[in-house]
């Protein structure tokens, strides 16, 4: 049985089921208990599972992520919420110097099964310190997995798998997706990490994206369809592990590729995709690979300016045409 629920409700359901099924899981974060989370993702869980399982923390990101690491190393499974991804930068030592490296540094003795749930991206005028897309930063560090779901179905299935991992997972939700609806089955399911999903089959061009940009790419595909262009949309779903094979397979069929992300263009993860594709599918490329990303400026507050800085559907349409030699700069 499937029904339509929102992205936020899907996360809530996943957390609910995880807390119900695994005694060692507990939630930790700012305002997630009584208040139910600033985006209401943890709503009702405090009442259901109590303050021992759904724990409000002081505003001490380094401190409580460090605490989560210690708890994870000693047999618990913390699911930590960092209210805005921008705040992970406050705790970056604990995430990248500590959690990401313990297994390796200890020769495999220490495991850190820690999920850090957070939300990123722009689109609601939150300004430069509350609108960033930092997935590429985390993906550059061996030892953490980085998941960026785009739909209610994916976010639930991927969160369940993330909690089952025996390593740190950075689980990046998108603030603009919380209220989007989609089909989610009532039955239990999970989606393995590292499997890209082809959200739309197509033959003329491959568009690679994740998180909110998947929906933008699908909208772009609709517009392109009117002009007879058949775009294939690949949702990477996670940057680490990276399912480059699905991308390569697709490019071998379409011969053109556009990479879309909300992160800043320069040094964005799109460059990694470009590099891998030219390396593994060079002889299948019929033109240069185009990147669509945010302008290289801090995200402005003004909604119109913000829109201009972040990739929009029209930018994707334009990039696809460029890749197809329909419109050349």
């Amino acid at each position: 049985m499937t029904r339509q629920i929102t992205y936020a409700e899907a996360i809530n359901e996943a957390l609910d089921e995880i807390l119900r099924d695994d005694e060692s899981v507990f939630l930790l974060g700012e305002d997630i208990g009584h208040y139910g989370g600033v985006f209401k993702v943890t709503k009702g869980l405090y009442d259901k599972f109590g303050g021992d399982r759904v724990i409000d923390t002081p505003i001490s990101e380094s401190g409580f992520i460090g605490l989560g690491i210690g708890a994870a190393m000693t047999g618990l499974k913390p699911v930590i919420e960092i209210m805005w991804i921008d705040f992970t930068l406050v705790a970056i030592d604990q995430i990248l110097n500590q959690a990401a490296k313990f297994s390796y540094m200890s020769g495999g003795q220490s495991k850190v099964p820690l999920v850090i749930r957070t939300q990123g991206g722009g689109g609601r005028g939150n300004g430069a310190q509350h609108s960033q897309s930092l997935e590429g930063l985390f993906a550059q560090f061996p030892g953490v997995k980085v998941v960026c779901p785009s739909t209610p179905y994916d976010v639930k299935g991927l969160l369940k798998s993330s909690v089952a991992e025996n390593c740190p997972v950075i689980f990046i939700e998108h603030k603009m997706l919380y209220n989007t609806k989609g089909e989610v089955p009532e039955e239990d399911y999970s989606i393995p990490l590292g499997k890209a999903d082809i959200k739309r089959k197509g033959s003329d061009v491959t568009i690679v994206s994740l998180s909110r940009m998947v929906q933008f790419s699908l909208n772009a595909a609709k517009e392109l369809e009117k002009e007879g262009i058949d775009a294939e949309i690949i949702d990477l779903r996670s940057l680490a592990p990276l399912d480059i094979e699905t991308v390569i397979e697709s490019v071998k069929r379409t011969n053109r590729i556009v990479v879309v992300h909300e992160a800043h263009t320069t040094f964005g993860w799109g460059a990694e995709i470009v590099s891998r594709v030219q390396q593994d599918a060079f002889d299948y490329l019929d033109g240069p690979i185009i990147r669509v990303g945010a302008e290289d400026v801090p995200i402005p507050y003004n909604l119109e300016l913000e829109k201009e800085v972040l990739p929009q559907v029209k930018d994707i349409v334009k990039a696809v045409k460029e890749a197809l030699y329909i419109e050349v700069k």
Binding site: S62, G66, L67, G70, A71, A72, T74, D93
Partner: peptide, 18 residues
């Protein structure tokens, strides 16, 4: 990292208590 083990030990204590 000189201070990094402090919250981690605190987390282990959290585990023990929990």
């Amino acid at each position: 990292i000189v201070g990094a083990g402090i919250p981690i030990a605190t987390g282990a204590a959290f585990s023990a208590k929990k």
